[in-house]
Write a protein that binds this DNA or RNA. Structure first.
Lengths: 142, 142
DNA sequence: TAAATTGTTACTGGTCCTGTGACAATTGAG
DNA sequence: CTCAATTGTCACAGGACCAGTAACAATTTA
């Protein structure tokens, strides 16, 4: 698969944060709106926090909040924060080496093609912001 | 992942078939040139055979051969013959239903976006033929 | 009749993802 | 200060998918 549910979970959580920016949201409260396990939400929002997309504070009345305006948060950032692997990649564990020149050459060609496609996809995702998503799914922004 | 090694294996096998079109190639002989297990090659070439990309004959002096000219075989056909899953897809096992409207809406939006990207990728792969691959990896065509 | 070959199935092992629980670290309230 | 709430992180089990391999029936030719 190209995109795991992590990406969807991240966007859902960001939508919750964007819907009400007055106070931080706990993983519990986000879970109540999405049905996703709080621990999972914490794990994914921690990744977004490391990339500076959300702010997190511990302790009483702590929680998560958007770090920037929704129209400045791009889908590509969310994707890269959450997914380690490339969107479009090829498993080339079999190097081939000198014994089998054909697989080495074919895999090399594929790697070039796929990294090219990868760039195309990321460019496309860079044109979509969290504000666009909110508009499309009709979530009122505060 | 987006593309398994099946796609690479399929292209490698097609390159072997294209390099010498005079006689059918057995899975054994293709294995000797690629290092891939004969059973795996048979499985993948059976998929290509079902889609009409290669011809297969059993029995003595049987084997596999290209069904069409290399410049009429497009990468997109190979891909679709070999991969069940979409190149760019999202696991949306969690339907959400009426209890959680947010995930349902976000996942629906993602499905639209991804099928759009999928179309882009397939269009790109439709512009690449087996003959192009052979040229790029310097395999002489007979 | 026998040998060679494909087509298909089953099994094993590995990797990744999801869901879940647990607990230390941190922070604010009283 | 003490305690409760919260994040950050780790560990574990279960499932899905894939690669690699072996085995065997079906088919075809010599």
């Amino acid at each position: 698969m190209s995109a795991s549910t992590k990406l969807s979970t991240a966007v859902q959580a960001l939508c919750v944060l964007a819907a009400n920016r007055d106070c931080p949201h706990s993983s519990e409260s986000i879970s109540r709106e999405t049905g996703i396990h709080p621990s999972r939400i914490r794990g994914i929002l921690a990744m977004l926090s490391r990339e500076g997309l959300v702010l997190s504070t511990r302790g009483l009345s702590g929680g998560f909040a958007l770090a920037r305006e929704p129209h400045t948060i791009h889908l590509q950032e969310i994707y890269c924060a959450v997914e380690e692997r490339k969107a479009f990649h090829l498993d080339v564990t079999r190097a081939g080496g000198t014994k089998y020149p054909l697989p080495a050459r074919v895999n090399g060609w594929f790697l070039d093609l796929f990294s090219d496609i990868q760039i195309q996809i990321e460019e496309r995702m860079r044109t979509i912001t969290l504000a666009d998503v909110l508009r499309h799914i009709h979530v009122p922004q505060s």
